[in-house]
Computed example of a mutant assay.
Amino acid sequence: MRSWARPVLGPTAAALAITLLTPTSALAWGDDNGWSPSKPSGKPSGAVSGGQLSAKVTASSIVVTQSGGGGVAKPATGTLASVDPNWEPPACWYEPVLSPEELKAGVEKLKGTNNLAPVNSHLLWADELFVNHYDKGQDGGYKNYNLGEKGMFWRDVVRAGHEDDIAAWDCNRIMFWQDAGTVPDDPNAPTPKVLAAYAYDKIRVPATEIELKPMAKSTVNLPTWVWLDKGTFKEVKVRAELPNTGLWAETTAKPVALHLEPGTADAETYPASGDCRINEDGSIGTPYTDGDANETPPCGIRYLRATNGDPFRLTASITWEISWEGSGGAHGVLPDGTFETTRDVAVREIQSVNR
């Protein structure tokens, strides 16, 4: 069983309601090495309106802006899937969420409501717990919400859609103070690389609308030419900034190849790998012209049998090369991403006429 750091709670605090973020989950106290809660479930928010004290556990303060991506007629439509199935952005990290004044105001709103608010993404506290820890300084806490000090209180954020991910429990600290101009000495502290991965998760790319010739039907043993006009795909840049930290990262997705899957084993691709490189001008392949019917296309498919009623499902996926740069001169690469679309292709037999 995995162990977790126990929040600093004295006898008074322990006697009060300390609730997991879902009322159906039980809090099981373990041995002296820590406490072991049951697997998290649900996606709750705090019960007090008007302030970050009650913000959802997925309410990140990261500001995201995107530029580029597709031509005028091809707006960004989908998210990228990493080619590395074992990679994904972090499940959780810490962010500054409240100034001393904001924390005090939030606790004041909580008083007398019988409501709870999250002290981290796993625990909800009643007003008395907040007062004891952040106002009265009990159990290693703070005096008068650190009013007059320069800095902010930080709390963990869970990546949207990963509230049930056990990795999200790595960020198990209750809301803590961090001096201005510094970041926590913690493996889950935000870094430019964390922001770059967050930006990766926000990249939106255009659909892969390829051109085929012939358009309506392909013919057995004759090549079907595949291409995209120049300028169809452009670099996409997503910038992620975390306010009150000076941290930022810009992730760039550059289209580098089109991959074709014919939808049947009875087909050949050009090139044989099915990977058509993107040209310097942003085009892929070469447009079909009259007289090319028997030529080998630089990017295309040759079907070896006809469809019988149901068309073949041609899959076209663009590979995007991912790099990033960030504050402090940080930079690096992330796994390539792909975005695919499908298209029905009907294939007919060659018609011959006997005289």
Rank of each mutant, 00 (worst) to 15 (best):
E88L: 00
G34D: 08
G78N: 06
N144D: 15
P89F: 07
V107P: 02
V97T: 11
P190E: 06
P187E: 10
A257F: 02
A5W: 09
L260D: 01
L247M: 04
P85E: 09
R343H: 09
L260S: 02
A15W: 00
N308R: 08
A316M: 07
T342W: 00
V72F: 05
G50C: 11
K234R: 11
A73M: 08
E241N: 10
C276F: 01
G337C: 10
S60R: 07
D344K: 11
A265N: 13
G141S: 05
E325P: 01
N33Q: 13
A180Y: 13
K136H: 12
T338L: 03
V63G: 01
N120C: 09
A253K: 02
G332C: 03
R204V: 08
N354F: 00
V236I: 14
A267S: 10
K39V: 12
A199F: 08
P184T: 13
E321F: 13
M1I: 13
K111Y: 04
S273K: 08
Y142L: 07
K74M: 03
F339Y: 14
M152G: 00
P297Q: 11
G337R: 03
P7L: 09
N86A: 14
L103E: 03
T58E: 01
P11S: 11
A28E: 06
E101G: 05
I18Q: 14
E211L: 12
S60E: 10
P311F: 06
W154I: 09
D127F: 11
V157T: 15
S273Q: 05
I301K: 04
P89E: 05
N132I: 05
G30I: 09
P7F: 10
F233S: 02
A5D: 14
G68P: 05
R348G: 07
F130Y: 14
W225Y: 11
Q52D: 11
D32Y: 10
V72A: 14
I203K: 03
A306H: 07
A216W: 00
A91P: 05
R277N: 15
A47H: 04
G78P: 01
A306D: 05
F153T: 05
S25F: 02
D281L: 11
C276I: 06
S327Q: 08
V57T: 13
R313I: 00
E209W: 02
Y142C: 03
D185H: 08
P271W: 02
T341M: 10
A197D: 15
T264H: 07
R305K: 15
V72G: 01
T307Y: 10
I18C: 11
F153W: 06
K150M: 07
A55G: 08
A17P: 01
Y270R: 11
S317N: 12
F339Q: 02
